Amino acid sequence: MNSTICIEQKFSLNELTGNTISECRFINCDFSHADLTDTVFKNCHFYDDESQTGCDFTHSVLKEARFIGCDLSLCNFRYADAFGIEIRECRAQGADFRSASFMNKITERVWFCSAFIIKSNLSYTNFSKAVLEKCELWENRWTAENVLGASFIGSDLSGGEFNEFDWRSANFTFCDLTGAALGNLTIRDTELDGVKLDMNQAGQLLMDLGIILQG
């Protein structure tokens, strides 16, 4: 499927599974419950400027799905199975990932996560209570993100831009934050156990405590 405009279309369960779709515009389309495993979307638009709405991906299967250079603003991904999803160089402003799953459960107590969300604008996106542990999440814009109760343990958040961001609301232990613009992150009220920082970042955090490093 290439260079197509789809308006208020409901996609059936396996209609797009494994396909590569380029330069398409989806206006108020319904992907809910669709199996989009291994589906690739390149330079597609899922946000409609006129109605200011995104598309519906609730309960969809997005295992190993790839969104490259797409506009996913205000799209609804609630309850989606997003293990192994790739979102690269996209706009996802205001998208809703609450209750989306990025994990593969082996047992109730044994599981692992996989997601590649890279070089994307995630401003105002909702990742409340999301579990994105040991995932590739680098060079994203995280302005005013809702991450209340989320877990990013061990993930690569390097090179990110964090503005109006509440570091206290989620777990960032053992994350790689090197090269990131950390905004209002402070040592006083944020758990930084195992976090990777570069020397400039560490120096700034210590200066906030009144400690000055000598070279």
Score class of each variant (00 low, 15 high):
F102C: 07
T4Q: 15
T178S: 15
H33V: 12
Q52L: 11
F83S: 02
L206S: 05
L177V: 00
L62K: 05
S99I: 06
Q9L: 06
Y124V: 02
R141P: 03
E8L: 11
L72A: 04
I153W: 10
T39Q: 03
F31V: 03
C90W: 02
A170Q: 03
G179E: 01
E136W: 14
Y124Q: 13
G18I: 11
S158W: 00
C24M: 05
C113N: 12
F152H: 01
G159L: 01
G160N: 05
F26S: 00
F77L: 01
T178V: 08
R91L: 15
N163D: 12
N140E: 08
L74Y: 08
F174N: 07
T37M: 10
L205V: 02
D71M: 09
E136T: 14
Y47T: 00
N184Q: 13
G54N: 04
E50K: 15
K134F: 03
A170T: 06
D38C: 14
W142S: 00
G194P: 05
D96C: 07
T53E: 12
S3Y: 15
C44N: 05
N14V: 05
I87F: 07
F165I: 03
A65M: 13
S73V: 10
F83W: 10
D30S: 09
L192T: 06
S60G: 03
E89C: 12
W111L: 09
I118V: 12
S155A: 13
D198M: 09
M199I: 11
D56M: 07
T190F: 01
D38T: 14
M199W: 13
T178A: 10
L13I: 12
A130L: 02
A170S: 15
C44L: 05
T190N: 07
T190L: 09
Q204D: 14
F67D: 06
I68M: 10
F67C: 03
T173V: 11
D49C: 09
C90G: 04
S169V: 04
S155I: 01
E133A: 08
N121E: 08
A115D: 05
E64I: 09
S60R: 04
A202P: 00
E139H: 14
